[in-house]
Structures are given as structure tokens and as C-alpha cells.
Design a binder for these strands. Structure first.
Lengths: 175, 175, 175, 175
DNA sequence: GATGAATGAGGTTTCATTCAT
DNA sequence: AATGAATGAAACCTCATTCAT
């Protein structure tokens, strides 16, 4: 267990990479955990900031179709995963998952989704909004992240976005 | 980095838990990585053995409907994730994702899926079989694993299985 | 080595407590040792200033009995240990004993004692003045300091002073 | 604060001096504090073992005079302080005093003293046995330790022992 | 083979000290 | 002069790995 990127994330290396001394790092963060959390939080905020960029135009009371909304959300999710993929990966593989990451990109994205879907409840096939939000968020995120790691070409060609739209719209919309 | 229960996965503790000496462990595995890999492989095999149990009855050239097949696959995936959830989680957090895990549960399940779907290509809406397999496998796995960690009640009530079937069948089947 | 309250004695904390910047501290003291020494010296002077208050009335050539003198010295020693007990303790635990502290409260008190006793040599039972001074000073100091730390009630009730007087007068005076 | 013997007591140096690796040290002691405590305890036990050697002959119900007893106790205390003076000093200056050392040589010696004196209460001038024990123990210990550090010649010539006996017997015995 | 005490590189963290502002 | 952020040597401690028994 020596190598690549995982145990590589040491406080001394973070400090060096950041161009500060290890002492300075500890002036801002009381310990490694808090440093990791701060990085994760910052990264999540960056992602959300970008997401807003894609989602704002939709407006909350807009009369866009669910299809349009979905498409935009997927586009946002793809864009968001391009923010800092290396950091994203390290955070997802270093930070005890549920405890920290859940609070961050997951929860935030779920909130956005929930409020979008709540307004269009009558057009939705699934009845349990909470469950639906969980499924959508998780599916989008895992497919995009998985593609990023294992099938990057699917993102470049736009194929994944297309299929995600098909997958989720068929599920969400009443026939 | 406190422990959060998972940094507890040290070679000495693995040996003790396994009831052998640390020295014996190193007689079988040259280093921690290989030990982890072997554990992962064994676990993946356990999962596949159980999966076969669910999938064998379908037969390869059977004339079951895709819906039936999907339902059975989902059932298999849920069962399979109950094999040793704690170990499963530890492995997912310890083993560098793409490099090892892909070789294991992912790849195996993908193969099973591919051969099932290949025989029913004409009934499928999506055209790119490879992409479809990726999407199905990933979606099933991430939703079940995610529920296991964050929403275990969804598994107990069977809700998740139901929704997964809805999600994937609507996507897969021609209208 | 947890803190136990006394490893808390860091230069930065001293500066903060003193209301100056750490930079300013280092303008006056070249290093921690010299700072500690200065603190110890100041503290010792404070103690001596107070001691003089008790001892001056005795006068050097006064014709007070040794008993009176002893009593006053003990009173002075008790008062002196109330000056800043916390600082006193910290200094005793931080400053290498023999090298610094000897120069301070010990030596000064010994000088005072020596000159008092020298004038009454003929009334003293012990013959070696130097040794006597060592014993008296050390006994007074260690019993008062020890009581301060471990048996503060002995100081409040005045019991310790009484016993110290008995202990030392029986030793010093000819029968 | 760089130098001599105080901050010198690091875990790595202890390990090196003990001829073991730092890892081995931590196999036996969970942290530095416990190591220090164990050293202190061992040292205190060594001292007590030697003390018993001097005190056993007295017997508990013996009819030795208090003078004889005192003399023997002082002799024991002097011998005891020769056990490992360097270690003794480090322990006294490193270990948060009251918390650890008190439990050790102090308490043990106090117990021995108390039981000796309790049997001869009617011959004692002081009335408060507890206070007397505190005074005797502390006086013996501080004078011997102080001489060891600052006036070693007093120990070699036996002068200190003599004066201690005079000091304490005059105090203890009824006239 | 099996054992587990021993190893030590390297990780996290502290704190005396410096120096640009 | 005064400030306090920055520095980094060095402390404590962990854990994958070795090797004498």
C-alpha cells in the first residue's frame, strides 16, 4: 500500500503542494481531518456555484417542461464534475464517505432537485418524492463519476448525457 | 484523520480477526495490497456464486421476457449486497476503485448482463449495447450500495427494488 | 505527556497573556530560557521585596531573640509564597532547578538568614553555620511549598507555621 | 530551551538508550506518559525495596527508641536516594509533580512512617500525627534531595544525616 | 510452517523562533 | 518598535513488514 494518490494525501505533501509550510497549514486547520473537510467543502461550494449557473435560468416558477429541467440538471451535473476531477476523486476516496461527502455535494444537489420536482408533482409518475430524489441524484452522480473514472470517452461524445436523459425522463414522466 | 472505524483495517487486526498470526498472513500474501485484493476477490466470488443462484434458472437462451430477467437481476443484486456488507464497504473504501474493483464485481456482473441482453437486442430501445450494460450495471450497483449505506429502510421494504425495475424497464424496453 | 496545565507555558501563550505580540517578546528576550529566567528573577524580586517588609523591622543588630526572628522569618516565607503561587509553581517546573532557581529565591533567602544567624552564633546549638543555613532555608521552603501544593489547609489554619517554629527552634536553640 | 537533560527525555532517546526500537517501546507503553509513569513506579519500587532492607530489622513491635528508629529511617532515606540519582532527578523534573510522584515515593514513605510513629504516640511531642508524618517525610526528602543536587559533599561526610537526626529528634521527642 | 516481538520509515502535530510588513 | 503569519526542526506515535525462535 505505497503508491498512487491515496495514502499520498499527507499533510506535509498538501502543505508543499500548496506552497506553504506545514506549520502554516496547522495555523488554519487544527488537524488533518478539518483540512480535508475544508477542502471538501470548498470543492462542493465550487461545484454548487457552477451548478447554479446552469440552473438559475430555469427559475423556480418557470413553466419549463420536466424534460427541459432534467436536461439542464444533467448538463449541470456533467459540468460540475469537470471542476477539479483529481481533487474530487481524492476526496471521494479519502474522506470517510458518508460522514463528510454526504453533507456536501449530495445533500445540496438533493435539495435543488427536490424543490424543482416538488412544483411539478402532478406530472410525475413516481409517487414518493423523497425516494425519487434519492434515485435521480444518485443515478446521475454515480454514472457521471463512474464514466469520469472508467469511461471518459462517454462524456466527451455526449453519449452519456443523452442516455441519462432517456433513462430518467422515461422513469419520471407520466405516459 | 480519526479512525471512523475503517482506518481500523490494519494488517495486524486482519490477522487477529482471522485467527492467524501476522507472520502467517505474510506467508500467503506478499503485502497488504495483495491481501486486500485477495479478500476483494474472494468476496466478489462469494457474491457471484450467490448471483448465479438467482440467475441460473433463467437459462441463457430461455424465452423469458426482459422484464422477468431484469427483475431477477435486480433481486440477485440486492441479495448479493447482503453477503457481507461491512466487508463490502471496507473494501470499497480501501481498495483503489478503478484498478481493482472493476476487475471484480463490476466486470463480472457486466459480463452476465451483456450476454443476457445480447440475445434480446431486438427488444431493446437503446442501441449501444456496451453503453447500456454500463448504465444498467452501474445504476443497480450504486443505488443498492447507496441505499445500504444511507437508506437501509428502502431495502427492507422492497421499495428500492420496485423503483429500480420501473427505472430500468422503462429505459430498456421498446414502447 | 498530556498537558496537565503546565506544558501550556508556551512562548506564544506567554506573549498573549502578557498582552504583547510574540515578536515584541523576542525583542526583549533572545530566547525562551532568558524569558523564563527574567520571569523567575522578577518573581524572586517580588518575593524578596515582600520579605523585606517582614524582616526590616527586626533590624540587623536588634536584640530580638532568635525565637522572634525565626517566627518572623517563617511568617515572611509563608507570605512570600502567596505572591503568585501559580507562577511560582510553573517556574519551579519549567526552570532547571539548580542552575537558575538557586540564584534566586534560595540564594537570597540564604543570605538574609546567614547574616541574621551570624550575629547570634553563641546562642546556636549547631556549629556549622553554613550547614545550618542550608537546612533552615530548605526546610522552610520545601514545607511551605509542599503544603501549598498538597495540603493547602495547613497554611490556612496556621498549623504549619506553628510546627515549623517548633521544629526549627528546638533545633537551633541551646537548651 | 534546548539543552541539558530535561527536554532531552524524548521517546526516541529513551528507546535508543534502552537499546530497543521506538516501535518496541510503544508495544509496551501506549504513550509517553505511561512510559514515564512506569519508569517512576519501577524506580519507586526499587527505592522501597532498599528501604525495607533498612527498616525491616526494626520490627513493628520492637522496643527500639524513637531515636534509633529515626536514625534508621534517615539512613534508609539517604541510601534510597543513591539508587539512581540521575533517573530520580529526571523523574522529579519531568513528571508533573503532584500527579505522579506523590503517589509513589512520597505516599509509600509516609505510610511506613505513620505506622512506625503510631505505635509510639505517647512519646511524641507533636500531637497531630498526620501533620507530623507530612513534616518528617518532607523534611527528610527535601534535604537529602537538595543536598544531592546542590551540596553532595554533605552526604559524603555524613554531616547531613547527623543534623537531620538532631533536627527531627529534637522536634519529635518529649523533653 | 507458524509465531509475534521487533523494527523503523514516515505520518501527524507542536512550538520556539524569524522576518516581512 | 511592534506585529503576527510563516517557518521547520523535531517531538510523539502508527503500522506494514521482517525474522529469530
Amino acid at each position: 500500500m505505497t503508491e498512487s494518490g491515496y495514502d499520498y494525501f499527507t499533510t506535509n505533501r498538501v502543505a508543499e503542494r500548496a506552497g506553504v509550510s506545514i506549520g502554516s497549514l496547522y495555523q488554519y486547520f487544527p488537524n488533518k481531518e478539518s483540512l480535508l473537510f475544508a477542502l471538501a467543502e470548498h470543492h462542493a461550494n465550487e461545484m454548487m456555484r457552477l451548478a447554479q449557473h446552469y440552473l438559475d435560468p430555469l427559475g423556480e416558477i418557470s413553466n419549463r417542461s420536466i424534460l427541459e429541467v432534467l436536461q439542464q440538471i444533467i448538463k449541470a451535473a456533467v459540468a460540475v464534475h469537470a471542476v477539479n476531477p483529481k481533487l474530487h476523486r481524492v476526496l471521494h476516496e479519502q474522506v470517510p464517505h458518508s460522514e463528510v461527502m454526504r453533507e456536501l455535494d449530495q445533500a445540496k444537489m438533493e435539495n435543488v432537485l427536490r424543490s424543482f420536482l416538488a412544483h411539478r408533482r402532478d406530472q410525475l409518475q413516481p409517487e414518493n418524492l423523497d425516494l425519487t430524489v434519492f434515485i435521480i441524484e444518485r443515478t446521475i452522480r454515480s454514472l457521471i463519476y463512474g464514466a469520469l473514472i472508467d469511461r471518459p470517452e462517454l462524456l466527451k461524445t455526449g453519449e452519456l448525457e443523452q442516455e441519462l436523459l432517456a433513462l430518467l425522463s422515461n422513469y419520471l414522466l407520466k405516459k
